[in-house]
Amino acid sequence: MLRPFVLHRPRTAEEACALLARLGEDAAPYAGGTELLLLMKLGLLRPRHLVDVKRVAGFDDIADGVRLSIGAGVTHRTVERSAAVQARCPLMASVARHVGNVRVRNVGTVGGNLAFADPHSDLATLFLALDASVELVSPRGRRELTLAEFVRGPWETARAADELLTSVRLTPWPASTAAAFVKFGVHERPTLGIAVALRLDGSGTGRARVVDARIAIGCVNPCPARAPGAEARLSGVALAELEDVAGEAAALAAASADTADDLYGSADYKREMVAVFVRRALRAAAARARGVAPVAGFPHTIVA
């Protein structure tokens, strides 16, 4: 059962922000409710007003320009099935396909997922690896923050109480990018998520080299983090030699990971798993670069 609340349904971002500004701590933005309503049922959150942002103009748009922009109210299902997302950033479509379960994907939104900043969010980890940013709007105007600036800690973001997350934007890497997202877990929410994106130079697959690497580690840590040491190690590596270097890069990633003890496992266990799964994610990305569809091959493991 839910405690009583008033439901507001603004049609514009300005209206929504004005409501949030006026109602302050008493209000919570609401979209799919897949996170918010659960915590309200448990009594952990008790907003007396919900500001439904689903009718705000433009919130459910996917705009395909120089940058790809996903409206905050776009559901995971829509991301999964969007032709624009599939064409410009196939990894995002693939990750969306594996968020939660089909019922969560049908109503849960990209913006809600990011704004909630659950440490077990796949999207924050993915978007961190893809150099995405989020746009926030408030009575003071608009601002754009990188994912790292936006997600501050577990369930904590840089969003002010009267600010609204409107979209997430990214510049898709070229089609030759080798990318993979690997996650592992026996519970509803994953224990670990690793995103890798390797930008390859233009030469044929036989001679391709990594010119830029992104590795993001999520779920095991208070908030998702890049692994700069591992990324640096991969720069300049020939695709053909990626397998040989993957173990070393994975060890660097594990060493840099700020793993935390929780019900999903001990910090030490998670650190070990980061090494294992960064290696597997690199292997999956390398397979894709060679035109081979990667297979998970291990229980409770998903390769997106």
Binding site: L38, K41, R103, V107
Partner: peptide, 22 residues
């Protein structure tokens, strides 16, 4: 909590958890 599927109904053809749907 949208984990088990026992409350699944279809809304305009889409599966949703009726326990977490206003």
């Amino acid at each position: 909590s949208q984990v088990c599927g026992a409350c699944t109904v279809l809304v305009d053809g889409l599966a949703v958890s009726a326990c977490t749907y206003l």
